[in-house]
Amino acid sequence: METLLSIIFIYIFVDNFVLHRFFGICPFLGVSRKMETAVGMSMAVIFVMTMATMVTWLLNSFVLVRYGLEYLQIVTFILVIASLVQLVETVLRKISPTLYQGLGIFLPLITTNCAVFAVTLLAVRMEFSFVEAIVFAVAASVGFSLALVIMAGIRERMEMAKIPDVLEGSAVTLITAGILSIAFLGFQGMLSL
C-alpha cells in the first residue's frame, strides 16, 4: 500500500512526466491553448496510458520475457499502442458516440505521443508488479494532465495580457513552460522509490 501511495505522489509531483522528464512536450504545447481541449486531451491520455500499460505489461511478462525476446520491447510496444488507440477509437465510436465526440480528435494524436510510450517502457524497466504498473500509469497520466491543465490556465490568462511583440506566441509559451518546470523542481527529493 505504501509503495502504491508513494508511486502516486512521485509520478504526479516529484517525477512529473512533462515538467521533470520532458515527455509529451508536443501535446503540452499544442493543446494547452484552451482549458476545454486541455481537459479533453488529459482524459484521453489517462485512458490510453492505463490501457496501454496493462496490455504491454501482460505481453511483456507472458510473451517477450518467456521467450527471451526482451530486445523487441520497443518495437512491440509501439505496435501495441498504435493498434490499441485504433481499437479504442473504433469501439468508442460505436458504443459511446458522446465520449467519441469529446475525445475524438485527441485519440489519433496520442498514437505518436512519447509520454504514452515512455510509461509502458518504464513500467517494465522499473520492474513493477501488475498492480503497481497500473497505478504508475494512472499517476503518470494524472501528472501529465496536471501540467497540461495548469499550462492551459496560464495561457488563457496570457491571451488577455499585453505581451511584448518579440515574445508573442511560442516564445512566451516556452518560457512559461520553463518557469513551471523550475517551480516543480521544488518537489525534488521529497520522496523516492
Binding site: L64, Y67, Y71, T76, L79, V80, L87
Partner: peptide, 23 residues
C-alpha cells in the same frame, strides 16, 4: 524475432479488422 513480431502484428491486424466489422 521475425516470427514473434509478425505474429503479434498479424494478431493485432486481425483484431482491428474484426473490430472494424463488429463495431
Amino acid at each position: 524475432a521475425i516470427l514473434a513480431l509478425g505474429l503479434v502484428g498479424l494478431l493485432f491486424g486481425l483484431g482491428l479488422a474484426v473490430a472494424a466489422k463488429v463495431f
